[in-house]
């Protein structure tokens, strides 16, 4: 059994005016709960775009369970993805169950859909139109959609942006269960350092380059490291604003 779920080596992405990622290297073990933190413009979404095969113009390598993702897109079957705020027409006529069913390649299995909706506490709203739900409820539906094909890795890009505190807590509790009870590897980007501290066993601090990668406690319990990272982030943040 290959234990390394993901290996990233010297990942570099250059846009015409800026280097979005510069020689980023780290690996993730199966069962890890990795929190990726970084300010706006740190390259978190670019990193995910590369991992998900949306962005293909990059240098370096990305391997999922040992396989280079440039060679085959089969690895996508192993991934569940929850975007920051899915863009869709608010009046899109699809029920919660229809949204979840989109992820299934073979014919829909009603029990499977009911099961994942139950996991995210949304089974009672299965026949509601997606646009009629709150943002927090919608994000839980998108977790259910990401889980229905039984992925080994769940990637979440700042999933609680715009979600109220109570819904965020429910969301975090669902993520914890998925990681601890089902051994799903979770990669989650967030601005919320406290939440990352509480949930993730590993942390990666990204700011175009990788500032730190390792055990979460080692980072958060080292005040100097947190301070250095915060200052570097602030400088980067101000620099980004100057560019824009």
């Amino acid at each position: 059994m290959y234990l390394k779920a993901i290996e990233i080596n010297d990942l570099t992405v250059e846009y015409p005016e800026v280097k979005a990622l510069d020689k980023v290297s780290f690996s993730i073990n199966q069962g890890d709960f990795l929190g990726i933190i970084g300010p706006n413009g740190a390259g978190k979404s670019t990193l995910f775009s590369c991992m998900l095969g949306i962005l293909t113009k990059y240098k370096g390598t990305i391997r999922f369970f040992g396989e280079d993702i440039r060679k085959s897109r089969n690895y996508l079957k192993l991934i569940g993805y929850v975007p920051q705020k899915p863009v869709f027409e608010n009046n899109f006529p699809a029920t919660v169950k229809e949204i979840v069913r989109m992820q299934l390649t073979n014919n829909s299995d009603r029990q499977l859909i009911d099961k994942v909706l139950q996991q995210v506490w949304m089974h009672e709203l299965g026949n509601r139109r997606i646009g009629d739900l709150s943002i927090g409820q919608q994000q839980r539906v998108f977790i259910a959609k990401a889980l229905v094909h039984n992925p080994k890795i769940l990637i979440l890009d700042e999933p609680v942006t715009g979600v109220d505190i109570q819904s965020s807590e429910i969301f975090y509790s669902i993520l914890r269960d998925l990681n601890e009870k089902q051994n799903i590897t979770i990669i989650w980007s967030s601005h919320d350092m406290d939440a990352v501290h509480k949930l993730a066993n590993k942390v990666a601090c990204l700011n175009r380059t990788l500032f730190f990668h390792g055990i979460s406690a080692e980072f958060f319990e080292n005040e100097d490291l947190v301070k250095q990272y915060s200052e570097a982030s602030m400088q980067q943040h101000m620099h980004s604003h100057e560019i824009h």
């Binding site: 998900l52 095969g53 949306i54 897109r73 996508l76 079957k77 991934i79 993805y81 975007p83 899915p86 863009v87 869709f88 899109f92 699809a94 229809e98 949204i99 069913r101 989109m102 992820q103 299934l104 390649t105």
Partner: peptide
């Protein structure tokens, strides 16, 4: 049907789903 519906709903997520 699934491919048409999914890509109508959200192109990026449909792409990620292969």
């Amino acid at each position: 049907y699934r491919q048409l519906l999914y890509s109508t709903f959200n192109e990026e997520q449909a792409k990620v789903s292969g």
